[in-house]
Every structure is written in structure tokens, then in C-alpha cells.
Amino acid sequence: MNMQAKPTLRELSYAEAIREAMDIALSQDERVILMGEDIGVYGGAFQVTGDLVEKYGTDRVMDTPISELGGAGIAVGAALTGLRPIFEFQFSDFAALAMEQIVNQAAKVRYMLGGAVSVPLVMRFPAGSGTGAAAQHSQSLEAWLGHVPGLKVVQPSTPEDAKGLLLAALEDPDPVMIFEHKILYKMKGPVPEGYYTTPIGKAAIRRTGKDVSIIATSIMAQKAMTAAETLAGEGIDAEVIDLRTVRPMDRETVLASVRKTGRLLCVYEGVKTLGVGAEISAMVAESDAFDFLDAPIIRLGGAESPIPYNPELEKAVVPQVPDILDAARGLLKGRI
């Protein structure tokens, strides 16, 4: 499928792009339903579903009780038996309440049954820090789910990809977990009209460069772009790759970039240890791209800490543009 619509100058916010994708899906496919807490007349915790309930009714835009485990399981059961549910969590942190159904059921049913069934389930997780919501409403847990065979995990960083990846997720016969960054919801960007998909498992090269490969996820891809412009002024030509999909990871794009630049900087908001950057680093170190490394690999990730409340502390525990600049300069000037 993977067809890319013609670019237009029309701009939508990231939240509007997601809503448009759901609107298209609801209008095209009777099997599609939305489930989640307060996604009806309230419009969703982050106003992503908005007024879709007015258009499609409460049978297809279903407010669930505050029952993440049960709700997720119902979505699994519905997906197993012919529906195409899109299940919205209010915050990705609440995935912890539903892990049983996501990890033990959705991810494994197909395999346990020897391939006899599929679970075409889409789950949406508003994730990330920056809203002052503190430790239980700010996490980036994509690595948790990325660790589970049977799931696919994506992290759009632009409005265009937010729409395209959601439509791709709906086409996919397997469970797709979409981690949306809360800070990006209001970010505007060009979004093609109509139906198109953004391929799952394919990273986007946001900026080509020859000196260092910055592999970033979600909002960090935006920060990496900002940093790259500054670095360009210093004569450092950074390549910025927006990973977009955590599982399955786009091995070819990452390795090709590292073979070209010889330097790898991973930037992600999730906790650094045992996170997405560890996987990227290991993937490079285990591959033939290893022979092209001319400096140690650097990971910039979240601190070994819950997300704090105080805004300055909150900023301090996740990578910021100056951190990316320092790391890239260090790699290039042979300080690391």
C-alpha cells in the first residue's frame, strides 16, 4: 500500500491529523470503532477525538468506564472477532493497568494459536513529559512494549506521520501501539489530504549529513533538527534520522547512515538504561556498520528518575537541544 499522497501546503496540528485519520477510517470502514475513556462528548483527554462522536455516534465512539484492563481486553476480543478497534489510553502511563491484555493476550494470541488468528488492534498512548503532570502522567514507555514480540510500536513526530502511521496501523493485521507525544499535539505541519499511509518499520531521514548520525525518536527528532541547524553553523554536518518505528526497527536506514558518518548519537526521551537507544547501539555494534565507527556511541536518554514536577527539574531529566549540541560537538572534536 504505502502510497504517499501529493504534498499540499495545508497545515494541521498533530492532534487534528490524528483525528482526521480516525475520521477517514470511521467513514471508510464500518468495522472501525473508537474506544477509550472520555473520548465521546468530552472529546478525549487531549481533545484528539474531538467531535467525532457527533458524526459517528456513541456506538462507534465508545466511552469506556475507567477500566483500562477490561477495556483493553475487550478491544483485543473485538479485534479477534471482526472489528478494528482503536483504543485510546488517556495517558501512556495507564498502560501499566492494561499490560496483561496488551502483553499476554494481544501480542501472543496469534503465535499461541499457531497463526490461526490475527489481532488487528490499534492502541494510542499519549506519552512524554513537558506538561507538568509529574511522575505518573509523563512517562515514555515505548521500550516496554517494544520489548514484546507480536506488537508493533510507532512514535510519530510530525502531523503528517501521525496521520499516515495511524492509517497504516489500521491496515496492519497485527496489534500496533502508537506512542503520541503530548507536547506535539498542538504542533502544526503540512498534512496531505485524503487517504495515505506512512510505512511502519521505515525511518525517515529528516536531514542528510556526513559527520554524525543522530537517531532520534518522537519529539527528540524535532529537537535533533533544531540542534542540527546550529551544528551546521559550526561546520558539523549532522544527519538526522527520525526512527518513527521502534519495533520493527529500520535496520537498513540506521546502518547505512552510520556507515556513512562513522559516529552515532541516539536521542530519546525514555529512560536511557535498557531503552530504545540501547537497542539502536547494539544493532550497530553487532552489524558490519561497527567497522565504520570512528568514535564511541553516545546515548542521550531520560535520567534514572521518575519525571519530576518542577518545570526546571522536568526539563533536566530529559535530553534538551544543548545536550544534543554538546554530545555532537564532543563526538566531532574527539572529546569522547
Binding site: 564511541p296 542521550l300 535520567a303 531529566v317 545536550d323 554538546d326
Partner: peptide, 11 residues
């Protein structure tokens, strides 16, 4: 001061 996980101390 700034507790983002930076490259390890030895580097």
C-alpha cells in the same frame, strides 16, 4: 545540576 543521562563519566 543537569541530570539528563549523559555519556558516562569516564568519557
Amino acid at each position: 545540576s543537569d541530570v539528563t543521562e549523559k555519556p558516562s563519566e569516564d568519557t
